[in-house]
């Protein structure tokens, strides 16, 4: 199994940390992983993306142009990455703030109201965990126990009290995906 993922959105949405938690979850179940961010003069409000690869084999290139799954969290990223999903792959996106919706019919398109659900749960910071939950529902490549272990590994200890909140956000995401096509 090899899953090649791009997560793309605004800086500050938790794009990079979502990727990191996913990568750590892979390590927790003995898989090979890579995490390659776009880096540069990026800042809150600018665009940010990260390529995460989880595989049973050693990861070859950390740099890719085609992905099994794209997780898209803003319009710029939709414009940039819709066509990078391999035929038969998945495109997961939060429709909030998207004006031009994806049109491809050769991939599976799923939405998650991540920002809305996070706001309903009273904490916009768990937005990325809601989206991660939605991803894990459609691509259950890592199991929830390992995600929680990965979360603990990637969070500083002073934030470990927030693990239950993150876990319920992941579950919220799992329960609320909408299949578009």
């Amino acid at each position: 199994m090899t899953e090649e993922i791009i997560i793309a959105g605004f800086g500050g949405q938790g794009v990079l940390s979502m990727g990191k938690i996913l990568a750590y979850s892979g390590i927790m179940q003995d898989q090979e992983v890579s995490w390659m961010p776009s880096y540069g003069p990026e800042m809150r409000g600018g665009t940010a993306n990260v390529t995460v690869i989880i595989s049973d084999e050693k990861v070859s290139s950390p740099i890719l142009t085609e992905f099994d799954t794209a997780i898209i969290l803003n319009q710029q990223s939709m414009d940039k990455f819709e066509n990078s999903v391999k035929p038969g792959g998945y495109l997961l996106y939060d429709p909030n703030g998207i004006s031009r919706h994806p049109e491809r019919s050769d991939i599976k398109i799923i939405t998650i109201e991540g920002s809305k659900l996070a706001a309903e749960m009273g904490n916009s910071k768990i937005f990325n965990m809601v989206v991660l939950g939605a991803y894990l529902k459609i691509r259950p490549i890592v199991n929830l126990d390992n995600v929680i272990k990965g979360l603990k590994k990637s969070l500083p200890e002073r934030y470990h009290s927030l693990v239950p909140l993150n876990k319920s956000a992941i579950k919220k995401g799992m329960e609320n995906i909408v299949e578009v096509n």
């Binding site: 990191k20 990568a23 090979e32 390659m36 880096y39 990861v59 950390p62």
Partner: peptide
């Protein structure tokens, strides 16, 4: 290089 420096792996 910047790729190997910035990427995360196990």
């Amino acid at each position: 290089d910047g790729v190997i420096g910035q990427m995360m792996e196990k």
